[in-house]
């Protein structure tokens, strides 16, 4: 890939690197925030309520990782077409064609179904290291549930959060079927750009976006290994 990128610099020059990079990063950031946010809600909720029902629900919600991305995307489109129409009819939205299909929102929702297990399980193992007596000590020092979460859990889990974020980022930047099917019109990432060129047999042109994809993923893997060591 490096060879092709070097001997065909025109393909590299044709790439809109800034746009591809920003699109990839926007998806990574949005998805990471949503996934980690919901993983916190689910794990801390479980911790507070110790409810069996919530635990079963969480276990069910992480099963998305077992479903291939393309099946998930097609199933989502089928379901969401009906749901989208119902929402737009209910609120009489006429100036938007679709809320979820072909939007970043829809893309993030499908990423969520697919990668929630990464965030939830990662956070669960982080929480296993925090003894309940730590929470109880905080309450007895006058900390509310939220303050305990903010001042005790978050600082303690910051490495775990970073690690989960990086793992999600690596998964998302290389995720192809979901991004390809669900992305907004003309919204390309390094992965989709590489696929488009490759599907047209322009392997030399596909080399540069693929190389960037590998570089970004490698960068994240390097940081991951640093955090694993630190943790």
């Amino acid at each position: 890939m490096l060879y092709w990128t070097i001997i065909f610099p025109k393909h590299l020059a044709d790439l809109n690197l800034v746009e591809l990079f920003s699109n990839t990063i926007i998806l990574v950031l949005l998805s990471s925030i949503v996934l980690i946010g919901f993983a916190f809600i689910s794990n801390y909720g479980n911790r507070l309520s110790r409810s069996k029902f919530l635990e079963i629900l969480t276990t069910f919600s992480i099963s998305g990782y077992a479903i291939p991305g393309i099946i998930l995307a097609v199933a989502f489109i089928t379901f969401i077409s009906w749901f989208d129409n119902s929402i737009m009819n209910l609120f009489e939205i006429r100036n938007v064609k679709s809320i979820f299909i072909g939007s970043i929102l829809g893309l993030v929702v499908v990423y969520f179904i697919r990668f929630f297990s990464l965030a939830s399980n990662g956070l669960k193992s982080g929480y296993l290291k925090i003894n309940y007596s730590i929470d109880e000590s905080a309450y007895l020092l006058g900390y509310s549930k939220f303050k305990t979460f903010k001042n005790i859990h978050i600082p303690y889990l910051k490495n775990t959060i970073m690690l989960i974020g990086i793992l999600i980022a690596i998964e998302i930047i290389k995720e192809l079927p979901i991004t390809l099917i669900m992305r907004p019109f003309n919204f390309e990432t390094f992965a989709t750009q590489a696929y488009i060129y490759a599907s047209q047999d322009l392997l030399e042109a596909a080399a540069a976006p693929s190389l960037f994809l590998i570089l970004i993923a490698s960068f994240f893997i390097l940081i991951t290994s640093r955090y694993i060591l630190k943790d």
Binding site: S137, L140, L141, I152, P155, Y156
Partner: peptide, 13 residues
């Protein structure tokens, strides 16, 4: 009310 637990309940970080 404050409670000092028998086991280590210091904030580990």
């Amino acid at each position: 009310i404050s409670l000092a637990f028998q086991d280590n309940s210091l904030f580990p970080h």
